[in-house]
Amino acid sequence: MSTLIEVDHLSRYFGKVCAVNDISFTLERGQVLGFLGINGAGKTTTLQMLSGNLAPSNGNIKIKDFTIINNPIQAKQCIGYLPDTPPLYKDLTVTEFLIYCAKIHGVSKHEIKKTLENVLQRCALISVKNRLISNLSKGYQQRIGIAQALIHNPDIIILDEPTVGLDPLQIKEIRQLIKKLSEDHGIIISTHNLSEAEEVCSQVQIIHKGCLIVKERITELMQSIKQCSLLITTKKPIDCVVLNAIDGVNAIEKISDYQVKINYLDSLDPTQSIIQCSLLNNWALIEVTPIKKSLEEIFISYIDKEQS
């Protein structure tokens, strides 16, 4: 694996306001790095600096062998960037627009046709390739935005909230596309959606008020945010006394006759026992759901952890 991006103590101030504060991380080929954070956390600012749209106040960004401040042209050659609003010339057709993007990214003339075909196919744009961009739906426009970032076959792809404003089917398609791309590229995506990060990212960084507070593999993160509690829904009333007798159950919170929330010990997962118990007592179990923390709760818990 080769290191594609090396970010070293990166900061950015807007006047006196600090938008990004002392961030360091690296990106390797084959990785999908997720930037997780609520709105205004500094995700977009960081990505703008990585893509060369914004000069940093402090720190260093190294793209492959080039620093973005001293060799911006060579560094940008290795990056495909999709900003939060896809930059589209709406009075062009899809093909015209992508050819223009290829040209300004320095794709040589005889390669344009090949890369264009390739990108159109990858982003499933072949059926609309001669349509005017302004006549296409938001989902297609987002995909053209991604296609624009891929056209020069960069090693690094930076996507700023690529699934915002799309319907579930389109979100699924784009996530699949990202997974497919991650095979031979390094990808950075930003999102405020935890489940999206879980699905596509291999590594997650949580950014809050400009600071990087978590930097972990996605599986570890999911493990750590599992809150030892279950939500149980049934068709017939639940007898709490029976539940309380099961090993590992710590506390029971009754929401209604048909729904309870169970807290359990970390070492002893009682899920199996609860299911068996419900069968024996004929409660007609509908749902057992492990409760996850929301992004905000994770922030709070991590900040608390840091402070204590």
Partner: peptide, 14 residues
């Protein structure tokens, strides 16, 4: 205004 300047800014052009 249309945020398309970003395209040129992130392309390898001066």
């Amino acid at each position: 205004r249309n945020k398309t300047l970003c395209l040129l800014f992130s392309a390898p052009v001066t």
